[in-house]
Amino acid sequence: MIQDLIVGIRSTLVLWVLTAFIYPAVILIIGQVAFPYQANGSLITNSEGQVLGSALIGQTFTSDQYFWGRPSVINYSEGDDAAPTGLSGATNLAPDNPDLLERIGTEVERLKTAETQPVADLVYTSGSGLDPHISPAAAQAQIRRVAAARSLAPDQLQMLISKYTDGRFLGIFGEPGVNVLKLNLALDNQ
């Protein structure tokens, strides 16, 4: 019994050094030295070095000047609730939960007021609350509004949308998505 305990403690320590110290340290060094952009969160900065966001994380957009992302139950980790750790989260509403229908009703009304066709991904909340993408159809549905607000030709927006659409992996896996933050930053830089 005591022998078992001693072996248990010693093996815990040696395996801890291997799997919880050496292994993460190797990956950390490789990441920071060889791939610092990805390793630090794919951050987008402006010319003054201020962080505008991450290429992988969505943000809230409500102005007519911008393309809107999907609804997020955690407000895309923005505001005082998210400080200082950052958040992720979903509604976890079941399909027959009346709250889900009520929320979707409100969302559809909001989109209709803005003369935007309610596409599924614009009314359903995402899994992470941080989804950076909308479907190409959801982007199409917003072209008229953004074009009017910015006095731009819809064709120009069309081009930007295709430019910031991440396709399927190998043309097969997953669904294409338009990166909303990158698209909106490109609009501002026009």
Partner: peptide
């Protein structure tokens, strides 16, 4: 890592969104 998953000991980042909100990443 190459595909974009972070590996850092750095603290959460504060970002200012184009609409002026403060985001904690």
């Amino acid at each position: 890592l190459i595909a974009g998953v972070p590996e850092t000991l750095g603290a959460p980042v504060q970002a200012t969104t184009p609409e002026g909100a403060l985001q904690w990443i």
